[in-house]
Amino acid sequence: MNAPPATDVRQHILDVAQPLLLRKGFTAVGLAEILATARVPKGSFYHYFGSKEAFGEAVLEAYFADHLARMDALLTLPGPAAQRLIGYFHDWLDSQAGDGARSRCLAVKLGAEVCDLSESMRAVLERGTRSVVERLARCIEAGKADGSLPAALDAHAVALTLYQSWLGASLLAKIARERAPLDTAMAGTRQGLGLAQDV
């Protein structure tokens, strides 16, 4: 049987490592555990990742690529931009409140931990979070243009405030092990966008 293509092996390592990192954090997961879970030899790991730090960068880049692709899909659905924004945040709430594979946010889990450990990983987090805010701001601008959101909104300021609110709510929901902080974030989102609570 032929060996899988190099990109498949690299992606396989990233795929199996992400749940470990979500559960334990970056520093608590050792290389031996990653290798054992992925069932790849040590040489394969270093072939694709020059160091554990480079591996951490790749995991975060893959996480944000997936998140941004899902975000793009949700924010380009048919309908008014306000409805698409609320749909995105409903998806966030469902993913954070559930028990499934998407029920944790890697930016929340690793953000505080790795920013003081690795400048390169911090930079990946910064780029990823900036991309999320930019997409939210574009959708808010679209809502102002289509009349579904108030014209007076400062799109970037509101987008940044909403993202900060949801990151904080995700962390508080994790601490409290309940979804109430996420419900509060949803109510605040509607208020910040000038929408009725049933939109």
Rank of each mutant, 00 (worst) to 15 (best):
A173T: 02
A180N: 05
L182R: 02
R177I: 08
A180P: 11
R190T: 03
A159Q: 06
T189F: 03
I175F: 13
L171H: 12
L171S: 09
D183V: 02
A159S: 07
M186T: 06
V158N: 04
A169Y: 01
R177S: 14
G192L: 02
T189L: 00
G168W: 03
L160I: 13
A157N: 11
P181K: 02
A157T: 12
V158K: 07
S170H: 11
G192V: 03
E178P: 09
S170F: 11
Q191H: 12
A159F: 04
L160D: 15
A187V: 07
P181Y: 05
A157C: 14
G168D: 06
A180M: 02
R179S: 09
L193T: 00
G192E: 02
R190W: 13
W166C: 03
I175P: 04
L171Q: 12
A180R: 00
Y163E: 13
W166T: 03
A173D: 08
L167S: 07
T161F: 10
T189D: 05
A185T: 01
K174T: 15
L172D: 15
A173I: 00
S170N: 13
G192N: 05
G168L: 01
A187I: 02
G192M: 04
M186I: 06
R190H: 14
L182C: 00
T184P: 10
A159V: 03
R190D: 10
Y163F: 07
T184Q: 13
T189W: 02
A185F: 02
R179N: 05
Q164T: 14
L162S: 08
L182P: 01
L160W: 12
A185G: 04
A159L: 05
I175Q: 14
L193K: 06
D183Y: 08
Q191K: 12
V158G: 07
Y163P: 00
Q164M: 14
L167R: 10
G192S: 09
A169E: 01
R179A: 11
M186P: 12
G168T: 01
E178N: 11
D183C: 05
R190E: 07
I175M: 13
R179T: 07
A173P: 11
T161E: 09
S165Q: 14
A159P: 09
I175V: 10
L182D: 01
T161H: 10
A176K: 10
G168H: 05
W166Q: 03
G192I: 00
G188H: 03
A187R: 10
G188C: 07
A187L: 11
L162Q: 05
L172V: 14
W166K: 00
L182I: 04
M186G: 09
D183F: 05
T184Y: 10
L193F: 08
A159M: 03
L172Y: 15
T184R: 15
G168Q: 04
I175K: 15
A169S: 06
Y163K: 11
R190I: 07
S170R: 09
R179F: 08
L160V: 15
R190A: 11
Y163R: 10
S165G: 14
A187W: 02
A187S: 12
E178V: 03
E178Y: 10
Q191P: 15
A169M: 03
M186K: 12
A173S: 11
G188T: 04
P181V: 01
P181C: 03
L182F: 04
S165V: 02
A180V: 09
I175A: 11
R177G: 13
D183P: 08
L182Y: 04
A157K: 11
Q191D: 12
L182Q: 02
T189Y: 01
S170L: 09
D183L: 07
G188Q: 03
A169R: 02
R177F: 06
